[in-house]
Each structure stands twice: as C-alpha cells, then as structure tokens.
Design a protein around this nucleic acid. Structure first.
Ligand SMILES: [Zn+2]
Ligand SMILES: [Zn+2]
Length: 230
DNA sequence: ACGTACGTGTAC
DNA sequence: GTACACGTACGT
C-alpha cells in the first residue's frame, strides 16, 4: 500500500553535506544504455553537467552561455529559483516531454550540421527505447533465474524487490555532477538519494505502470514527430 | 566490504 | 500531497 506517496516524495529526497563524490571518475554509473558507442569518457565534459556525447549538438552558441552551471535552474522547489530563461538543460528536453526532435532539428538547421541530425535522431529514439543497433540478443542486465536474488525471494522468503535502474537517456540522467545544494545532495548521508536534478524521470514516473501501459506524452503521437523529420 | 541509489514507510 | 529517513538492492 502506499504506492501513491512512495512515487515522488518518498524516494526523491535525501541529502548530503558535500557534493564531493558525485559519482566516479567518469563512469556516472553503469548506465543500462551504452550511450557513447565508445565509453570511457573520451573527452572532458564541456559543461561538466552533461555527457559529452550530447553536448556536441546542443551547444550552438545561442544558449549555453551560462558559464557557471547553476544547480537550480529548472525551478524545482529549491531556493526558489526563477529559472533565468537563458538557461536550459535536461529539463527542457526530458523535463518537459516535448518533441525533442523538433528542437534539436531547429538547432541543427541553424548550426548547419548533418551530424546534428543524427544526434536528433538518437535523442528521439533514445528517449523511449533506443533504436540503436544494439539489440542485446540476450545480454539481459538481469541474470534472471540462476540467481537467488533474481528469483525475487531472499533466503528468509522475503520478496526482495528488484530496484529499477535509470534510463540513462533522460535529461536528469544525462547530468554528470550533483548540484550539491538540493535536499538530496545536502542530506545524501541520511537520505541516500540521488541529486534531485539527476533523478531519472522514468524512475519518478512509472510507479507501477511499467510493462503493460504504453505511456506516451500527451499530444503529438510520436508518429507525427517522425513526420517532421521527413 | 563499501558507496551509491531505489523503494518504502512515516512525518508534516 | 510533499518531504525526510531507513532499509536494502546493486555495482564496484
Ligand atoms: Zn542536488
Ligand atoms: Zn533517466
């Protein structure tokens, strides 16, 4: 019971004092998706807040003039940020759930870059289910069977709930470092939660509608979005 | 073994 | 309904 509350509030806030150990040396974590065909952080993050792979097509010059990435720019509920307006980050893409392709394409046109097109494609498909070639015929992340934990039952018989993993493609997931000022960051020691700005959107949602429910963003049934590309 | 982060219960 | 704290799954 209590699934309603557990979804957002419950897990979304914890804290820590310092944002020292954001993650690891670059391996944000073991993202389920193999984003950069070539892992191992080839180059340093230009912004430091986003993965290099995606920043490439994102920074056109028009935006990205933040200089110093501010932790609170989306206007979550921290510090009463008003969202400057020039600042846009994962929130605008994954946060709003608007047609990413359109935006990216618009930028691509301005910048005049074919490579941007591919980026857009990646983002669009990546947001939902990665259209990559990587089909993973069988490399299932979950060992399924053959493992006590996978069975879902621990020694005592308690049903061990398997934890979901971040999608790795949404805005928050693409973030690399913690803001260090949000509740989660401040109380990480006690809260054991990831930075609010890094909390995967998929994890925020899908409290129990995973699998059978085809959740799609209101308006623009994907199909239409596709048409915009061609 | 350790740190990180998801899930859940409770407090407000 | 939101925020906080705890247990524990998960990866290294
Ligand atoms: Zn934070
Ligand atoms: Zn995500």
């Amino acid at each position: 019971m209590h699934q309603s509350s557990g979804g957002s509030g419950g897990g979304g806030t914890g804290g820590g004092s310092e944002g020292g150990g954001a993650e690891k040396h670059g391996h944000t974590a073991s993202l389920p998706v193999s984003q950069g065909t070539a892992h191992h952080h080839p180059i340093a993050p230009s912004n430091g807040n986003f993965l290099p792979g995606y920043s490439g097509g994102a920074d056109c010059g028009v935006m990205n003039k933040q200089g110093h990435a501010h932790p609170d720019m989306m206007g979550l509920s921290e510090g009463g940020n008003c969202n400057g307006g020039g600042v846009m980050s994962g929130g605008f893409l994954g946060g709003l759930g608007l047609p990413p392709g359109v935006i990216v394409m618009a930028m691509g046109s301005a910048g005049g870059g074919i490579s941007d097109a591919s980026s857009a494609f990646q983002m669009t498909s990546g947001q939902r289910a990665l259209t990559d070639c990587q089909q993973h015929t069988n490399s299932s992340p979950c060992p399924s069977s053959s493992s006590p934990s996978s069975s879902g039952v621990t020694a005592g018989g308690t049903v061990a709930k398997r934890k979901r993993k971040r999608c790795g493609v949404c805005g928050p997931c693409r973030r690399l470092i913690n803001c260090g000022v949000c509740s989660s960051c401040r109380n990480r020691k006690t809260g054991h939660q990831i930075c609010k700005f890094r909390k995967c959107e998929e994890l925020k949602k899908k409290p129990g509608g995973g699998g059978g429910v085809l959740e799609r963003p209101p308006s623009v049934p994907a199909g239409e979005a596709f048409r915009w590309f061609f």
